[in-house]
Design a binder for these strands. Structure first.
Lengths: 130, 130, 130, 130
DNA sequence: GTGGTCTAGACCACT
DNA sequence: GTGGTCTAGACCACT
């Protein structure tokens, strides 16, 4: 379910968050789904339980999941909505990035081609559930 | 010339690098220009000289500037070329970002509109020299 | 493992880099090996941690080692390849040196003898692993 | 007579020393020759007089030249001998360099070829006087 | 404990 | 004055 790159500069708990968000976006995880327990995921990935805990706590804070003491962690009903709203705020990142590429002399066609292909690749994937 | 956000998660020396690269891209800095000395910039920004030194050393290594001990630091002749080549390699970032936005359900038109406007805004600015 | 000459004109961090490269070339360090931590090496050599950090950071940049914050620093898989490629580029130094010796009237036989003996001594050492 | 690279990392006074030694080795300068005055060379090269002075002082110390107050600086009678002896001591550098190249896996033939060509190129030049 | 960043301040060679 | 190196020591995030 999760794959961790221990060598990455990105902290492990952020990798966990990103991957769980990806699973939500592509539909592999849905509202109400139960997540693996901190202990089991910790053993499965050979990772310190504190690191898993930190990722879950952050997702809880964002409203992506909620924890029921003694039961486990579950995906929130409005997880997808929360996530989409969050991503929409990242449109500013796209703007900044494109401006930089333009200033660096990258041709507009090169940029548009990449945008089109990337969008196509993702929207296809989003329609089916893995 | 530079503005530092001490609270940012991005290290100060990286902020300096990014901003100097921006100044190059928009044409405010050109080949041969002398940069503020480590000490003067350090005082102007209320930042430790070592931090300035770290930023300049990294830009030296990248071939963006060259330092002449006893004289100062100067923008390299091929700084713009080095920078453009570097930015071109970051097209993968654009791809990843667009894929995420697509998965989050952002409409294609919204993305294309932002890309077009951002490109237009930058290419205009790049044609004139401040 | 490392020996530092504080009086040398060569900066300490460069001495560290050279010595670590030597340990790689003679096979005392291999891909995957964990390096002493910044702090422990700093204490062992009575050198400031920042200086160790500077050496490690440069070796990281060159692809000789990789650092995992919270874990430690490790020799890269392709460290030897990176190093060999780097050394091959320094054949120009050999050319310059021999030209100077020739102009100084050093006999060709003297030079060839030294080259032969040095090559022999090293290739023997490189075949075994300490 | 001298060409200075202001951008080089090698200090200017060392560049001056190296070049004067080269002129001696190839025979362009000989015992008794008068060197340009500090002031004239300073103006010709657009360099601070102190820098020229530092180079001359060092060559004086080595016994390569001597200064006659009010007259100027002159090449010593035994300048060539001093220089050759000095260079002969650098044979150790050759040894170290070849060992490193051998350890890095550079083929022996590659090294010998470069040594032969370099020696040939220099000895030809040394026989005639420019 | 581990690497990464930063401050404060010193000293050096070179110009 | 200028860049480069180094020490001493602090704080941070991550594990």
């Amino acid at each position: 379910m999760f794959t961790i790159d221990a060598l990455s500069r990105q902290p492990i708990y952020e990798q966990l968050i990103s991957q769980l968000e990806q699973l939500l976006l592509i539909g592999s995880l849905k509202a109400g789904d139960r997540l693996p327990s901190v202990r089991s995921l910790s053993m499965q990935l050979s990772i310190n339980p504190n690191t898993i805990q930190k990722a879950y706590a952050e997702l809880d804070r964002r409203g992506i999941l909620y924890s029921v003491p003694g039961k486990g962690c579950f995906i929130s009903d409005n997880a997808s909505a929360v996530l989409s709203a969050h991503k929409r705020k990242e449109l500013g990142t796209l703007e900044t990035l494109v401006k930089e590429l333009a200033l660096a002399g990258i041709e507009k066609n090169t940029i548009l081609e990449i945008v089109n292909q990337a969008y196509l690749a993702s929207s296809k994937r989003g329609n089916r559930n893995d």
